[in-house]
Structure formats: structure tokens, C-alpha cells
């Protein structure tokens, strides 16, 4: 295979429980993505333990990604890593690996924003140009849209992230992850068999959301044997997804954009997809959902962001490549978006 004319970027993602390496060409072709996920006993994430896991797997994941992409280390022309936001110890592990690799290969190092990366991979994968984005994952719940140079945040959670809400509920319900099946997917499956709707707190403030009251109420209902788990999963999903859809619709009405992009790990949920598709249609907008492999945290999106940033001259000198735990989406210039 002759790929010598192409330029490759290797991206390292390590904001939370996933350590992932992706390799992408300058044309935006994703050649490989390898992820190793830290699984804890309790289900929660302990940043230091997750970071130790990442340190253990760095070599293995890198080798596997290069092998899958059929390239040699010397073919890598840019190294990108997620510089934030995320958990300190996890971010630092990825950053250290990226710095070492970039200086060993003597190639540019690009520190990129994890949140922007989620949006950009979504745009690349779906062809969306200028969407209202709903980014829903284990650690984030954000409604954003581009305006003059940056992605502006229109709404976000006031307490816990949506993925976290589902995961905590699932654990309280006694569900445990099985091979290749996250607990949230089990909740989705159970919910599809729910019939009775039990009202739960519904908290929307403008375009912001709050899930903690609902989570507490739902968890309390678990202890009452009166309700079937299927019905509680159904009620939980209907409540939280209706809230998400409501604020996304509000952002859509305000911005008058013509696309809706759903991304992040929770984007896998079919019920949420259906709801968003309905409001997109009502506002004559195109509904786009990120393919599963790019919805969860992945190195590919970091590599692609690295390419965009590199092409627009946003280099990061190694001495300025410190991690940024609370780096906000609207602090990042996105010069590749026009207007």
C-alpha cells in the first residue's frame, strides 16, 4: 500500500476513563482507532486509578493503532492530544505520552479542546455545516452553536451530566456492565419494555437543565417494589430526554440554524434520537447523529482536531502544553468555521 504522499496525525484522548489513540489523514480519513477503557469495581471513576490504567496501556494502544493504520511511527507528522477539559491525572498521562512522542519524532504537538473535538468529528462524519449541537456524555451536557468565531454555549447542566445520571441510576438498580454492553444500554433496553409512566421532577431553566432532583426521586422509587424496573427506566428516559429535547428546540428556535447534531456517548440512545428528529423536522432542520464509533471518547476526533488546528496555525509549544482541567468550549477560537 502506498500512502507516502499522505500526511498523518496521531491523536491521543485521555480526559476520563478511556485511553484512545486515533490516526487520521489530512483528508479526514480515519485509519485506525484503538481504545482501552478503565473499568472500576464501583462504577464511578477514580481519576488516579484511571490514570494508572492509561499509563499501563499507552504502549500497547499506540502500537495497535499504528499497526491497524499500516503506518510506521516515522510517518506520523503531527501529534495531537486532548488538553482539556477533564480529570487532571488522566489528562496528564495523555499529555505526557503526546509530548514524548512529538519530541521523539520531532513533529509539531497540538493540544486540542476535547469538547470542540466532539463537535468537529460530528461535522466531519455527518457533513453537518453549522448545526445546533447537543453534546451528551458521561461528563457533559451542552447545547452549543457557532457564532462569530466560536462555539457559544446556549445551555448546559446545572448539576450532574446526563450520562452520569443514567449510569448512577443503573447502578442503584443493580445493573452491572457486561462485555461490550454499558449499563446505559441496558436501561435503554429495559425502557423499551416499560408501559407505566411514573412522573418525576422535570427541571428546565431557560436552556439549562438539572437532573439531580430527578435522579434522587427515581432512585427512591427503586426501593419501592411497587414499580417494575422496566417502567422506572422508561419514566427516567422519557423525563430526561424530554428535557434535553426541549432545550435543544429552544436553542434551535433562537438561533434559527438548519441542522441539529447529536453527539457524545448518550447519542447512541434510539429514543433520544427519535425525539430530536421530531423537533428537527418541525423546524425544517436536518437531523444528524454521530456514528457510534465517533460518539464515545475517541482518539480519532483528537487527531482530526489536531489537523484543523495545525492547518490554521494554532501550534502549541511543548512548554505551553500544560493541561487545562476546566477549559471551556467558548474559550476556543474555531477559525475553520466561516463568518
Amino acid at each position: 500500500m502506498h500512502r507516502s504522499a499522505m500526511t498523518y496525525c496521531l491523536g491521543i484522548e485521555s480526559t476520563a476513563d478511556d485511553f484512545s489513540v486515533g490516526i487520521v489523514t489530512f483528508e479526514g480519513e480515519a485509519l485506525a482507532n484503538v481504545t482501552s477503557t478503565y473499568m472500576s469495581e464501583s462504577g464511578g471513576i477514580h481519576p488516579r486509578e484511571a490514570a494508572q490504567h492509561h499509563t499501563r496501556v499507552v504502549g500497547k494502544v499506540l502500537r495497535e493503532a499504528l499497526r491497524k493504520a499500516h503506518i510506521e511511527p516515522k510517518d506520523v507528522e503531527i501529534v495531537a492530544f486532548s488538553q482539556g477539559p477533564g480529570m487532571g491525572p488522566c489528562l496528564r498521562t495523555g499529555a505526557t505520552a503526546a509530548r514524548a512522542l512529538a519530541s521523539y519524532l520531532d513533529v509539531p504537538l497540538m493540544g486540542v479542546n476535547h469538547l470542540v473535538a466532539h463537535i468537529e468529528i460530528g461535522r466531519l462524519a455527518t457533513g453537518a455545516e453549522d448545526p445546533v449541537t447537543l453534546f451528551v456524555s458521561g461528563g457533559n451536557t451542552i447545547v452549543a452553536a457557532f457564532d462569530v468565531g466560536r462555539y457559544r454555549i446556549f445551555g448546559e447542566t446545572l448539576d450532574i451530566a446526563i450520562g452520569n445520571c443514567i449510569d448512577v441510576f443503573a447502578r442503584e438498580a443493580g445493573l452491572r456492565p457486561e462485555e461490550g454492553l454499558p449499563v446505559a444500554a441496558m436501561v435503554e433496553e429495559l425502557a423499551s419494555r416499560g408501559v407505566v409512566f411514573v412522573p418525576l421532577p422535570y427541571t428546565v431553566k431557560g436552556m439549562d437543565l438539572s437532573f439531580s432532583g430527578l435522579l434522587t426521586a427515581a432512585t427512591e422509587l427503586l426501593r419501592k417494589t411497587k414499580y417494575r424496573l422496566e417502567d422506572l427506566c422508561h419514566s427516567l428516559q422519557e423525563g430526561i430526554f424530554s428535557m434535553l429535547t426541549e432545550v435543544t428546540e429552544r436553542a434551535l428556535a433562537h438561533t434559527e440554524k438548519k441542522e441539529v447534531l447529536l453527539t457524545g456517548g448518550v447519542a447512541a440512545n434510539k429514543r433520544l434520537q427519535t425525539m430530536l428528529e421530531i423537533i428537527a423536522k418541525e423546524h425544517e432542520a436536518r437531523f444528524c447523529v454521530v456514528p457510534k464509533q465517533f460518539a464515545m471518547d475517541n482518539g480519532t476526533m483528537i487527531a482530526w482536531m489536531g489537523i484543523l488546528a495545525y492547518q490554521h496555525g494554532l501550534k502549541v509549544p511543548i512548554e505551553k502544553s500544560f493541561v487545562r482541567l476546566k477549559w471551556r468550549l467558548d474559550e476556543v477560537d474555531v477559525p475553520w468555521m466561516k463568518r
Binding site: H46, P85, G139, N140, T157, D159, I160, A161, K326
Partner: peptide, 13 residues
């Protein structure tokens, strides 16, 4: 409030 809902507040137990 601005600090909340960020990654930091995710359950890290």
C-alpha cells in the same frame, strides 16, 4: 454555578 456541571463535578468516587 458556572463551576458545576463541568467535568469536575462528575462523581469521582
Amino acid at each position: 454555578i458556572e463551576e458545576r456541571g463541568r467535568y469536575v463535578s462528575r462523581e469521582e468516587g
